[in-house]
């Protein structure tokens, strides 16, 4: 019983972090039909930057997201304006090709500059845990979860309470309607892409503490994130949250009662099952129908 409870709580904690990482991916897809396969590479890039900052300045890795988030926002904006904008209006598969190229480029740069070895940021609390009764919760997981929730809450407020967020939601719900009220398609897309990239700023910093990583780890991460947004319904933010919690739970439970080796497989099984039985994902239907009317 304790084991189950512990697994469930850990699953939810990690699910919260996944939710943050997937939110950027689903946001970008929802607004401009771009599947940003480079989101995983963004995460690893940020993890690397965080690791370097932590190593050289001693700054707490999770707190380093105060630096990495604006950095990724800026980088995302520039990338959109210079590279991504060229495939505006093309099919999503085109975006997969382009961003895959981007991911390979980032991986290559990291290989050259940081070397092809595993790294992990290990702050002082790295091996400590909070104990609640019989349950022990690794501090890094708890901090990571709290940071992720905080950022998701900020993202929610930005999307619902600011004009930038309204413009982004308007573009995703009805592009021609947005154009009619004067929302610029390109500038909004650039902001949305930047916002999506900035979620990997916090996500990557958290990742650097929770998981060992090396340049090619991004394949692993993008598969997880794609599994989450396919399950939740591509483009749906609530879907990404639910999908992330479900898959975080499934992964932890599999690792606890099955084996660690099977745990990552959960994501691929889910992608396959969702595509077979409910291609629109959990939250996909309403969005599609409404927009198509």
């Amino acid at each position: 019983m304790t084991e189950l409870l512990q697994a469930v709580i850990l699953g939810l904690l990690i699910g919260g972090v996944y939710a943050l990482m997937a939110s950027g991916l689903t946001l970008v897809f929802g607004v401009m039909n771009i599947i940003n396969v480079a989101q995983g590479a963004f995460l690893i890039f940020v993890a690397m930057v965080t690791w370097w900052l932590w190593k050289h300045t001693g700054i707490d890795p999770i707190l380093a997201s105060v630096i990495t988030t604006p950095m990724m926002f800026g980088l995302g904006w520039v990338l959109y304006r210079t590279v991504i904008v060229r495939i505006r209006g093309s099919s999503p598969s085109m975006s997969v090709l382009l961003t895959f190229g981007l991911a390979l480029t980032i991986e290559g740069i990291l290989n050259i500059t940081a070397g092809n070895k595993f790294k992990s940021a290990t702050p002082s609390y790295f091996e400590e845990s909070f104990r609640v009764g019989d349950i022990s919760l690794p501090k890094s997981q708890v901090y990571g979860f709290l940071a992720a929730m905080l950022v998701l809450a900020v993202l929610y407020v930005v999307l619902t309470r600011t004009w930038m967020g309204r413009a982004i939601r308007a573009s995703s719900q009805n592009p021609s309607g947005a154009a009619l009220v004067g929302v610029g398609a390109t500038s909004t897309a650039a902001l949305a892409f930047a916002l999506g990239a900035s979620t990997s700023g916090v996500g990557g910093s958290i990742l650097s503490v929770l998981y060992p990583f090396f340049p090619a780890s991004h394949y692993d991460w993008i598969s997880r994130l794609l599994g989450i947004i396919v399950l939740g319904g591509m483009g749906s933010l609530p879907g990404a949250l639910v999908g992330a919690l479900v898959l975080g739970l499934a992964e932890t439970l599999t690792a606890t009662y099955g084996s660690l080796r099977w745990a990552t497989l959960v994501f691929y099984v889910v992608i396959l099952a969702v595509l077979l039985f409910r291609p629109q994902g959990l939250f996909g239907t309403r969005l599609r129908e409404d927009v198509a009317v």
Binding site: R166, R169, A170, N174, G177, V291
Partner: peptide, 13 residues
């Protein structure tokens, strides 16, 4: 300003 022939609203707002 223009009211188009079909669907100009944002359905989830």
């Amino acid at each position: 300003t223009q009211v188009p022939q079909s669907q100009a609203l944002f359905p989830h707002m």
